[in-house]
């Protein structure tokens, strides 16, 4: 076999990647400034968790809404996930006594979702083979709802949700999300080099975050990595939108490609988790 087989045609990948990164960077910077609009208002663990829960809820709302629509809401229970995600999103925006119950429900329903998706895969022809992991109900996705609930609950209990506890949980969540991105990008054969980004940066950021309790130095190192991960969460939908454009019919064929193309609302999960982790960092950067 020749060392390199010539490609019959090419696309301007680098331009697209740099473009997406630039747009995401500008959007991220603007958001960051808006968030820090009150001078010196340091990002607190509570604010980080709450923001993380909000972003995760929004992502789950859109993602499960679209994916369960693809599944034609065949099982009536499929409306629960987007409904609950909407509720958790609401609870992150307003103060309400019902919040702990909603967050708790999200935590439980997410776990049940994982179990239900596993059961579904298991009964398909092929069982837990790669094909079903690629195309059947995703194993990891419902965990994002649990995570939204967990972050929401944690934000209500700063005494329990201490930074040194939030960090490893966020790290684990980052790893899980990276694993899911990895699985789906493997399904796409990493055809675009930027598809490697979510399987490289977030795991490193996760490692640094998990270890940030060890020393303030590590925590300081975790910050840029988490900021990068957050940016990925913003750049992802832009790249995925380009991916839809790359499919047959492009955006004109949106009614198919919103379902079959790369999922628009999936990448912001990285943003949500990174925000929660970033909230925990200042305390960890100061300790000792």
């Amino acid at each position: 076999m020749p060392a390199r087989i010539p490609e019959p045609s090419r696309r301007p990948l680098l331009a697209v990647g740099l473009g997406a990164a630039t747009v995401a960077g500008v959007a991220g910077a603007l958001a960051w400034r808006w968030w820090h609009r009150s001078e010196r208002a340091e990002i607190s663990p509570t604010r980080g968790l709450r923001a993380g829960a909000a972003v995760l809820s929004l992502a789950v709302l859109l993602d499960s809404g679209i994916e369960h629509y693809r599944g034609s809401f065949e099982n009536p229970a499929m409306v629960i996930a987007p409904t609950l995600a909407l509720a958790t999103l609401g609870m992150t925006a307003v103060e309400d006594r019902a919040a702990p119950y909603v967050f708790g429900a999200a935590l439980a329903v997410g776990a049940a979702g994982v179990a239900f998706h596993s059961y579904n895969i298991g009964k398909r022809a092929g069982g837990f083979d790669m094909l079903n992991l690629f195309y059947a109900a995703p194993l990891g996705a419902p965990a994002a709802l649990s995570l939204a609930g967990l972050f929401g609950l944690a934000a209500e209990h700063p005494d329990v949700a201490k930074p040194e506890r939030v960090a490893p949980v966020a790290a684990l969540a980052l790893l899980g999300t990276a694993a899911e991105a990895g699985l789906l990008h493997f399904r796409g054969a990493f055809q675009n080099p930027f598809m490697f980004a979510p399987v490289t940066l977030p795991p490193i950021a996760a490692a640094a975050t998990a270890a940030s309790g060890i020393s303030p130095l590590v925590a300081k190192a975790a910050r840029p990595l988490l900021l990068g991960t957050a940016l990925l969460g913003i750049a992802g939908p832009i790249l995925h939108a380009y991916g839809i454009h790359r499919n047959m019919g492009g955006w004109r064929n949106w009614s198919q490609m919103i379902l079959q193309g790369p999922p628009l609302p999936a990448p912001p999960a990285f943003l949500g988790i990174a925000l929660a982790a970033l909230g925990a960092l200042p305390a960890l950067e100061r300790t000792r």
């Binding site: 047959m248 064929n253 009614s255 198919q256 079959q260």
Partner: peptide
């Protein structure tokens, strides 16, 4: 079915179109 093909391919599954 071009450019739009189909998404839902399994048993008893059908697209709105």
């Amino acid at each position: 079915a071009s450019p739009r093909g189909y998404v839902r391919l399994g048993f008893d599954e059908r697209d709105p179109w």
